[in-house]
Design a protein around this nucleic acid. Structure first.
Length: 431
RNA sequence: GGGCGUGUACCGAAGUGGACAAACGGGUCAGACUGUAAAUCUGAUGGCAUAGCCUUCACAGGUUCGAAUCCUGUCGCGCCCA
């Protein structure tokens, strides 16, 4: 147990991460009186997780920092059904193999952010372990009896779909809440998990779990709480976590540490302090300090840098964060063509790249066409537009629609750096 | 089962025989200004061999010199009746 034990609920509150708790005084007492276990569930809908999932992961991490034991529940079972919350449409069912594969692929993410050693080690469980063996008759008799259909159809996520004639809701998804409730009950019973953490949109599913525990567990063991965090929003009203190229993922195969770092660095001023509180472990004093620096000297972008550094370090590790930052510095210094080969090589690993045959350069290669090849432009029309706008540079030299590439544009004999707009880089290697 | 209505680009929404690759708004992308920010202004937003050509207005046919627009059928959706 850490010597300076932070108070979990206080911590969430000053960070703006506390939305609602089923019984705040109760959960405070509970946490103060021992080492507790809390869980958060994750849906294996893909083979990676996005920064949207980073909030609950960080909730677990903070819980751990507060001296308790976090439990990650991977939805190997619930993922086979699909949570209707926030979904307009019925989901396509995934195969057991697919879901298992996703569970396995997501596991390392948790392993890098949470601590799995020591007295308050984190643990990971897969709810397929207990949901997979359930028998229909038993569930209907032992669990189903405690759910009122009248209440279930009142749930926001269900009601929406019930009144929507175009979509409707299947019995399968309608029953999702029962499985999530069962998870909580099972974890209470077998792992002494007393708290469920989640986003405010999960409130309904979470309290259903508390209800079930109250009904199925003897009085001595029926204490349970739920704590929710607010959903992350952006100051400009846009959807959090989206970029020009799509979602921001937590694994390097889908979003490079460089792109990840850049995402945070480009956060809006109005969001940066909030994000520091949400997505980093920096202490209150440090964040207050950054806030005042940010207010007096916004152009230095200290808060942004620190946010990007801290978040990237958490997800990708210190080395990757350093490389990502260095790559960004190199690219935005405006002196790329003067960088030495070793630095360039490092930068290359971080940004999108492609290989080409040197022979293509021969008598001059049309940039209009080449831009499409590098996927910096979607079509030649767009390519011409970018070039016409003066949005494209080759090794930091501005080029136009009539320009061509030749072997004179190669750095160190075989490399070329193309930029579209302010931030989209592409590296070409010519062999 | 019957009646009426409706289906347009990423989204919303005009257009009801030619000047329509299709108004307008949002979104998105780019340029300028900045701080790799926001706001603002400007431009772009089906594709290409770009003074031009090709493919689009749910789908399949038809009328016409000419169709997003008219007709027929199919499908989806909405409302009303049974």
């Amino acid at each position: 147990m850490p010597t300076t034990r932070i108070n979990f609920i206080d911590e969430l509150q000053w960070r703006g991460l506390f939305y609602q708790a089923s019984d705040e005084p109760g959960v405070r007492d509970h946490l103060a009186s021992g080492t507790r276990r809390a869980y958060a569930g994750f849906d294996p809908t893909a083979d990676s997780l996005t920064i949207g999932n980073l909030v609950p992961i960080m909730m677990l991490r903070r819980f751990q920092e507060a001296g308790h034991r976090p439990v990650v529940v991977m939805g190997g079972g619930t993922g086979l059904i699909g949570d209707p919350s926030g979904k307009e449409k019925e989901r396509d069912l995934r195969t057991v193999e697919e879901v298992q594969g996703n569970v396995d692929a997501q596991r390392p993410i948790f392993e890098s952010i949470l601590d799995f050693d020591g007295p308050n080690a984190a643990m990971i469980v897969n709810n397929y372990e207990w949901l997979g063996d359930l028998k229909f008759i038993e569930v209907l008799r032992d669990v189903g009896k405690h759910f009122s259909v009248n209440q279930m159809i009142q749930k926001e996520s269900v009601r929406e779909r019930l009144t929507n004639r175009e979509q409707g809701i299947s019995f399968t998804e309608f029953c999702y809440v029962i499985l999530q409730a069962y998870d909580f009950m099972w974890l209470r019973r077998h792992h002494d998990v007393t708290i469920q953490l989640g986003g405010s949109d999960q409130w309904g599913n979470m309290v259903s779990g508390m209800d079930l525990i109250r009904r199925l567990e003897p009085e001595s063991r029926n204490e349970s709480w739920v704590v929710t965090n607010p959903l992350v929003t952006k100051a400009d009203g846009g959807k959090f976590g989206k970029t020009e190229t799509g979602a921001v993922w937590l694994t390097a195969d889908r979003t490079s540490p460089y792109a990840f770092f850049q995402f945070w660095l480009n956060a809006a001023d109005a969001d940066v302090i909030r994000f520091l509180k949400f997505f980093t472990l920096l202490p209150q004093e440090r964040i207050a300090e950054l806030e005042s620096i940010h207010e007096s000297e916004p152009h230095r972008r200290e808060a942004h840098r620190e946010l990007a550094r801290a978040a990237t370090m958490l997800v990708h590790g210190a080395d990757a964060a350093e490389t990502a930052e260095a790559a960004g510095k190199a690219l935005f210094s405006g002196e790329v063509s003067r960088l030495d080969r070793a630095t360039l090589e490092e930068v290359f690993a971080e940004v999108p790249s492609s290989n080409h045959a040197k022979a293509e350069l021969g008598s001059g290669l049309s940039l209009v066409e080449f831009l499409v090849e590098t996927s910096l432009a979607k079509s030649k029309r767009e390519s011409r537009e970018f070039l016409g706008n003066g949005a494209v540079t080759v090794n930091e030299r501005k080029v136009g629609p009539d320009d061509t590439l030749s072997s004179e544009d190669l750095l160190h004999g075989d490399l070329m750096l193309i930029r579209r707009g302010k931030k989209s880089w592409h590296v070409c290697r010519w062999g």
